[in-house]
Design a binder for these strands. Structure first.
Lengths: 195, 195
DNA sequence: AAAAATTGATTGAGTAGTCAGTATAAAAGG
DNA sequence: CCTTTTATACTGACTACTCAATCAATTTTT
C-alpha cells in the first residue's frame, strides 16, 4: 500500500513539473523508490497512471470546494465573489502541482481520444466555475450584483483568476500585487449593471 | 531556400499542434518533404529549430502589433481598449498555431535554462501587454479611463483575453458568446475609478 | 572544379511495457 | 504449533522500438 501511494505521489510531482512525455517510467521508479515492474503491477499503462492521478485530483478538489461552499456565509454575494477568488488562489497554491497538471496540454490532449480523461477534466472545470457562479447568483438575489448571465460572468472571472495562477507558474512577471487588483476589478465589473 | 522554409513551416505546425517532445524529426522530415539530414544541415539541433520558429514569431508579432498601433486612431482611449481586444483576438485566430506555441509549456521550460528563449518570450509578452497599456494610457489622458496603474490593468485585461483564447484552444466550453461580454466587462472595469 | 545543399543508412542512448521468478504473509491442514 | 498452500506484492533483466544526431556519399549551384 505504501508503494502504490509512493508511485502516485512521485508521479504527480513529475507529471506536473516535467510533463507526461518528458517523464520516464525509469525515472519515476527511481523517485518513488520502487522497481519499474512495480509501477506496471499497479497501473496497467502510463496513461492509466495519469488517469488515476487526475481522478484523485477530481475527488479532492470537488470535496474541498463543496466543503468551502457549505462553510461560508458572507454578508452579500459580491463579498462572496471576493471570498471565492481568495479561496481559489489559496487552493491553487495549496495544490500547486496538481493545478499545473491542469495547465499542461497533456491531459487536454488525452481527453480528445480518451472519454474518461474528458469526463474527468469536465468535472474539474465544472466544479471550479460552479463555485463562482453560485456566488454571483447569490449576489443577484441580494441585489449586490447587477443583471447578467451568471454562468458567463463566472467563466470570465474564472478566466482572470486562473490566468493569474498561470502567470505565476510561468514566472514571467511578478504577479504578487495583482491579486488585490483582480479582486477590485471583479467587484467593479459585477456591482454595476452590465447591459 | 524552399526547403529551409518548408522545414520551418512544417515544424511550426507540428510543434504547435503536437508539442516539442511529441514531434519527432523523422515525422517532421516526412511532413516537410525533406531528408532527415537536411533538417540538421540548416538547424544544428531540435532546440535550435524551435528557437528559430520563436524568433520569427517574435519578429512577425512585433511588426504586426506596431503596425496596428500606428494605423489606428480611435475616438477615445476606452474605445481603443475595445479595439485592441478585437485586434488581439483577430491576431490570435490569424496566427492560431503560433499562439498555441506560447500556451504550451515547452517554450517556457526551455526559457528557464536557455537565455535566448527567455529573451524571446519576454519580448513577445512585453509587446502583447504594451499594446493594452498604450490604450489605457491614452484613455487616462482623455479622461475616458479612471485612475489606475496602466501596466497592471493591462496585464489583467491581457490575462482575460488570453484566457479566452486558451479556453477556445482547449475546446472545453463554447466560448463564442463570451467575446462581447469580455469587451463590455473591460469597459465597465476601466471607465470607473477603481480604488 | 569548388562550394553548398541534400540524402538516408547508421549509431547509441533512451523508451514503455513484459515476464519469469522471488519475497511476504495470511489461510488451511496435519 | 508447525508446515504447506495460495494469493498478492514486488523485482530487475529483457525486448522491441523510437529518438536526435552524425556522416560519408551524392547531387545541385556557383
Amino acid at each position: 500500500m505504501t508503494r502504490k501511494n509512493n508511485i502516485l505521489l512521485a508521479a504527480t510531482h513529475l507529471l506536473a513539473v516535467k510533463g507526461f512525455k518528458e517523464t520516464s517510467m525509469a525515472e519515476l521508479a527511481k523517485v518513488a523508490e520502487v522497481a519499474q515492474g512495480t509501477i506496471f503491477y499497479h497501473y496497467k499503462t502510463k496513461e492509466d497512471l495519469f488517469l488515476a492521478i487526475l481522478k484523485s485530483f477530481q475527488e479532492d478538489i470537488v470535496a474541498e470546494f463543496s466543503r468551502y461552499r457549505q462553510a461560508q456565509q458572507s454578508a452579500c454575494g459580491l463579498d462572496m465573489v471576493a471570498g471565492v477568488i481568495d479561496f481559489y488562489l489559496h487552493m491553487a497554491s495549496q495544490m500547486e502541482e496538481r493545478f499545473m497538471l491542469l495547465h499542461r496540454h497533456d491531459a487536454h490532449e488525452l481527453a480528445r481520444s480518451n472519454a474518461e480523461f474528458h469526463a474527468c477534466l469536465e468535472a474539474i472545470y465544472d466544479c471550479l466555475i460552479d463555485i463562482f457562479e453560485q456566488a454571483i447568483l447569490a449576489g443577484q438575489k441580494d441585489g449586490s450584483i447587477g443583471e447578467c448571465s451568471p454562468r458567463r460572468m463566472a467563466m470570465i472571472v474564472f478566466t482572470m483568476v486562473d490566468g493569474l495562477v498561470r502567470f505565476h507558474t510561468y514566472n514571467l512577471y511578478d504577479v504578487g500585487g495583482l491579486y488585490e487588483d483582480v479582486v477590485r476589478v471583479c467587484e467593479a465589473m459585477l456591482k454595476n449593471n452590465i447591459q
